[in-house]
Design a protein around this nucleic acid. Structure first.
Lengths: 106, 106
DNA sequence: ACAACAATTCGACATATCTCGAATTATAGA
DNA sequence: TCTATAATTCGAGATATGTCGAATTGTTGT
């Protein structure tokens, strides 16, 4: 577990890998921007989109979409929660904050 | 060329892909942190490290290191400049700014 | 219990990536 | 010109990734 300047390189690399696929990046971007300005994205606020909504303008098979959601989840970028037949997705604000700080470290 | 919320998804994905490899991320992190605080990273300032210096604590073959440098360059994250036998590397502050803004878009 | 819908798992395939060693190019200095 | 050093290019091999279709699981409503 290599550590550099307070950042865990492996953790960051995993996050960037998850964002390196255009389809996944679009999913993430959509989740980030779906939160109403001024409010935090969190599970409590329920500012999320279900899996099928996230794949609407993506032209990938449901199985591929599911795979991408899991990748984002394993990288710690999003969290999920079942709501009836749907699975809602939410950005993890702490991880986003970590990434912000990385690029702000001069 | 897909565009979302003012961001070019392909461009961002290329940058994240370049940062998704732990070795490349460490190279980038080292370049980012080598700039003296308060100063901008730019070719003019010559606040760079040569290729071999960047690979010192990385335990990869020179050919691999060269490959990674080129990946970072193609993604627009760094710029290079020959100085005698060495090739100096510099972070591109504009690209870093773009990535900052992406994570700051709520 | 059954049908419909949402999502996941699994196996397979094509493609991309990471890495290396060997050979090559570029530069500086004797 | 010759040698040493820095870096790159090239080809190859192992591994990882993106994608799909088919089958399966979980949930709701009839």
């Amino acid at each position: 577990m290599s550590n550099c300047c307070g950042f865990n390189i492996e953790e960051l690399a995993d996050a960037f890998k998850a964002l390196s696929n255009p389809n996944r990046l679009q999913i993430f971007q959509r989740l980030v921007s779906c939160c109403t300005p001024g409010t935090l994205c969190s599970v409590e606020d329920l500012n999320g989109l279900c899996v099928s909504e996230l794949g609407e303008d993506l032209s990938v098979a449901p199985s591929t979409l599911s795979h991408h959601i899991k990748e984002l989840q394993h990288a710690g970028l999003i969290k999920t929660q079942r709501r009836g037949k749907n699975i809602d997705c939410f950005v993890d604000p702490e991880k986003v904050e970590l990434l912000k700080q990385f690029f702000n470290s001069q």
